[in-house]
Structure formats: C-alpha cells, structure tokens
Design a binder for these strands. Structure first.
Ligand code: FES
Ligand code: FES
Lengths: 135, 135
DNA sequence: TTAAAATCGGATTACAATAGTCGGATTTAA
DNA sequence: TTAAATCCGACTATTGTAATCCGATTTTAA
C-alpha cells in the first residue's frame, strides 16, 4: 500500500514535538507519553534520527533530544531517508545500489515512472518540520 | 517503505501493454511472457482491473483483454485504488471507514499531513496510462 | 560515591502484508 | 468436442513492519 510506515509517522510526530518544545530538552519518555507512541520503538526511531543528524542527543539523567538543524531545513523526504534509507517507488529506480531489473534495458515504463517519482519526491521535499509544527 | 507494490507495478505494465496493442485483444499469457510477470499473479491483477472497469475481458479461446476506457482517462491513482482499495498515507486519514486514531481529536500533524497527501494524490491523478504508453 | 534517569544498541519475537502458487470451474471459438 | 482462454477461491511462502527484551553506558544530582 502507498502508506507511510509507523516509524515515519512516529518520526514526524516526534520531530514536530521537539520543534514545538525547542526551549527545552525533551526525553523519549516524554514524547512517548504525550504522543501515545510505544516507548521502545520510539527510542529506536530517535536514535536513527540522531545518527543522521536530524536531532542531537544528551546522555544521562536530564538528557533527551533537541533539533540538530533548523526546523525549516528538515523535510519529510529527509525523514524518510533517515529512517528507511531511501525514498523510491520501484526497486529498479534505485540506481545507487547496483540493482538491475530484468526489464531494465528496454523497459517501457521506466522513464514515465521516474518522472512521476521525481514529482512526488518534490512534494515530500517541499514539506518541512517547521511547516508541520506551525500549521 | 514508500514503494509501489509489485501488483501496482504489474498493473501499470499490463495496462500500458494493452494500450499500446489496442488494435487487438491481448491475453494474460502474452503480457506475462512479454513483460516477464508471473502468469498466475498477473491473472489475478487483470481480473481486479476488469472488475473495476479499467479493462474489459473476453472469455474463451481467442479471448483476452482490451481497455475499458480511454487511456487518457485512466490515472495511476485509479490503478492504485482499483488494486488496493484506497490510496492514503496514514490510516487515520481514511475518513470513509470509521477509523479513529487515538490522537485524532487534537492531533498536531493531521492538517499538514492531509495537505501533503492531497498534493501527492494530485500527482498520481495527473499521470495517465496514455502518457505512460506514449512517453 | 552512589543511585536514578536517561540514551544506546543488539537480538529477538510477533504480526501483517505482499507475492506467488495450486486446482478446478466456466466460457467460447474453431 | 477439444483447446485456450478467463475466472475464482483457497492456500503457501516470503518479506517487511512493529514491537519487545535485556543489558550496557552516560550523566546529573543527592
Ligand atoms: S526497469 Fe524495472 S520495471 Fe522498468
Ligand atoms: S489523527 Fe492519527 S496521527 Fe494524527
């Protein structure tokens, strides 16, 4: 299905929460409770976002997370890539890893599908956490 | 993952093939062989498209499929809905079935996400089989 | 110095969706 | 009457998602 995964959903909710409460450090526990997200799963998601630099972590008691970059510079596409590694519609369109579809040489839908994909990615790339946090 | 399912991929490939060969009736077997799609799975997919009127079937020997409507009037969104029932990003955004997300009453991402979704759906709705078949 | 509260991270499990298969019934042209 | 096709339900296999478990490490503060 053309559906955003729970992980993406949680990631957006968390980033939005962190952006809204940018005056303090927020813990995974706080986000989990306030947003109704399973704690362990959320922790994993936050750790991934941290590794990609979207948020910065503070260890130890009184620790938690703050944004790693300006909310206006974090797009939904960034979040998807941070949490799922890539954002592409068809496996054969991921040119980076050496995947070659058996239809590839003379595929009849490749070009139009790539166009479609790039249009959708533009949409994802034009929606930022700042927008989501203020709307 | 934000990925089109094989079923959608096969559906697009098949519809495009049928559109290109609109001078004749094409069988599931022909599409299967020409496009490299598992026959049984493709058959199921074609039957679904038939039920939704995107293609018309002809029983018996010398049977097969032709388009059920003008190729310019069949969008990628139509195909997704025909094969997966709906096209939506988050379960809580499917207002038709009575799903209510526990965050729903005062959800902080609902509005911006709905906007995002409608933009993406516009893209899907602006790409037709006619375009895919001729590009 | 010690305890508490937090992040970190690997491994594992449970569940759901996708992808594909099988067997048989029905239709239709030759 | 036979062959080639659609039709249809049930089934299986595989993958991906979602969630959990357990322990280690870091840091603050009493
Ligand atoms: S290249 Fe794989 S379907 Fe076109
Ligand atoms: S209504 Fe479900 S996440 Fe917003």
């Amino acid at each position: 299905m053309i559906k955003l995964s729970k992980k993406i959903e949680y990631g957006i909710l968390a980033l939005q929460y962190i952006a809204v409460h940018s005056d303090k450090i927020v813990s995974a526990k706080e986000i989990s409770e306030q947003m109704g997200i399973p704690y362990e799963f959320l922790s994993k998601t936050l750790q991934q976002l941290m590794k990609k630099g979207l948020i910065v972590s503070q260890h130890g008691i009184k620790g938690g997370y703050v944004l790693g970059k300006n909310a206006a510079d974090v797009t939904v596409k960034d979040i998807i890539i941070a949490l799922e590694g890539k954002a592409s519609f068809l496996d054969c369109f991921v040119s980076s890893d050496g995947l070659i579809c058996e239809r590839s040489p003379n595929c009849t839908i490749k070009d139009p599908m790539e166009k479609l994909q790039s249009k959708v990615m533009q949409v994802f790339n034009n929606t930022t956490i700042a927008e989501i946090a203020t709307t």
